[in-house]
Nucleic acid binder design. Sequence first.
DNA 1: GGAATACCGTCAGGTAGCTTGACGTTATTA
DNA 2: TAATAACGTCAAGCTACCTGACGGTATTCC
Lengths: 158, 158
Amino acid sequence: MSKSMNLARLLLDRFRWFDQALLMALNDRMGLKVTSAQSLLFADLPFDGIRQAHLARRLGVSRQAINELVQGLERQGLVEVVPDPDSRRSRLVRPTARGRKSVRLALETFSQVETELRTRIGDRPVDQLRRALASDWGDPPERSSMSPQGRVSGRLPT
Amino acid sequence: MSKSMNLARLLLDRFRWFDQALLMALNDRMGLKVTSAQSLLFADLPFDGIRQAHLARRLGVSRQAINELVQGLERQGLVEVVPDPDSRRSRLVRPTARGRKSVRLALETFSQVETELRTRIGDRPVDQLRRALASDWGDPPERSSMSPQGRVSGRLPT
DNA sequence: GGAATACCGTCAGGTAGCTTGACGTTATTA
DNA sequence: TAATAACGTCAAGCTACCTGACGGTATTCC
């Protein structure tokens, strides 16, 4: 059944496997009601701050989308937006104390979950999985017209 | 840089790599403006029809969500919803002629893209990738309260 | 030095993809 | 036969995106 499944579906399903674990950890252990999109931001949130435009490029979404996510996190007191000392047109998104705790929990969770996965399917497969995923795939084939934007989360949009 | 990236992000990015190729193929070769969510449905669309509730369970979303996607595809003439001969409370979602052509193109594209990937990163890594992804991971750890629903697409929602 | 250009965040308005809740219909189970 | 469960669907609401446009700030270029 899963043997003949296409790689795209498999990749998405496995992403959701991780994502679900993360969301549950953040919810249960810190009472956070972050969304999947917000939680993904955490992975790229250096403690010394980062520009929104930078995050946008990193995640492959528009600056506006990032702006919205950041505002949500700000409302929950997880990040604060401060002036960038290096450039007056930019502002830095930086986790608060509580935010840093969440970021740490998120990273911890990912690593724990990966460890758990190793006990389930073995060290070798996980290493091979990571290696295959992390190697350079280049740009997607079939390149052409079409809009460049993607989705940060895991939904099925445009 | 990508070496230390967490598996979740890697999985999502690679899913998007495939998804983008699919969307472009459907757009360029058939002029279809299907969304990412709709295109994912294709992977699970048997030519002899399937129930919406079945699709919902398969993709891990609500029946209502599927209903919406199906209506979108119906508007574009890609599927038709017909009575289920086996049960009067159910209806079958079945691709039209044009729909079947799209489904075939989608499957073809996935296979071509995978072939292309093999020439880029090698046969072994792709085989290992598929094997690791398709093996039984069991339920996500950290199980607990929280809502069960996930997202079909690739976005970052609740 | 000053003007064009490019980049930063953000407002406004719009869409797709979801959710929960509720309902009528049909099938299954007790 | 009566309760229960499953199917599709309507309604309302939210989140995650998008494009377009704007006013500030840097950078580049004559």
